[in-house]
């Protein structure tokens, strides 16, 4: 097996090994046989993701530091730096597209079902907070006036945050209306 890893230039931590034939020692040098193994390269998701995002960032024409950490079973890949707006785009649409492509690439390269979240300059948390504030403000308005409130168009992920923020409210219901990418949440009284 060591020979196979060396030949492929793959570290033991990146290999998936399947034994096809057990070795046998034989008797007086007769009847012995070698082990056969199949080694498949499965790169570690965090290492692949960081390398890939690092190259992506450079080819988008900006400079950023990339690091990854596991959080709630997901791999968070974070890019830090100045002037990284091109990676985020209008309402995070470029960021979501990049994140989607990274997930497809990681799935292909590393196998398994590791989900990757891409974040740039803390955008994810900032945006989540802003969306929640918007939802609570609109909810307050609906409670006061009784009239439905329509929020700005949001991505599926953002709409989920709104639904979650208001799902426990005894007086209000939230639903999504319209077609992507202009789908919006409408908050109404029950």
């Amino acid at each position: 097996m060591r020979a196979a890893l060396e030949e492929l230039g793959v570290g033991a931590d990146e290999a998936e090994v399947e034994v096809l034939q057990e070795p046998r020692r034989g008797f007086l040098g007769l009847g012995g046989r070698e082990a056969w193994v199949r080694v498949t390269r499965r790169r570690r998701p965090e290492r692949f993701a960081v390398e890939f995002v690092d190259q992506l960032v450079a080819r988008m024409g900006v400079h950023g530091r990339v690091r990854a950490e596991e959080r709630d079973g997901r791999l968070w890949v974070e890019v830090e730096g100045d002037d990284l707006g091109v990676l985020i785009g209008h309402r995070g649409r470029t960021l979501d597209a990049l994140e989607y492509l990274i997930n497809v690439a990681v799935g292909r390269e590393c196998g398994g079902r590791q989900r990757v979240v891409l974040d740039v300059a803390g955008y994810r948390d900032r945006r989540a907070e802003a969306v929640r504030r918007m939802a609570l403000r609109a909810a307050e308005r609906v409670r006061r006036t009784g009239r439905p409130a329509t929020l700005e168009p949001m991505t599926a992920r953002e709409r989920k945050l709104v639904h979650l923020a208001l799902q426990g409210d005894p007086q209000l219901v939230t639903r999504s209306e319209g077609e992507e990418p202009f789908r919006k949440i409408v908050i109404t009284r029950k």
Binding site: T94, A97, V104
Partner: peptide, 14 residues
């Protein structure tokens, strides 16, 4: 067309 759509979004931004 989800993948090519994401590809276009990224390339257009750059």
């Amino acid at each position: 067309g989800r993948i090519v759509q994401a590809l276009r979004t990224v390339v257009k931004a750059a």
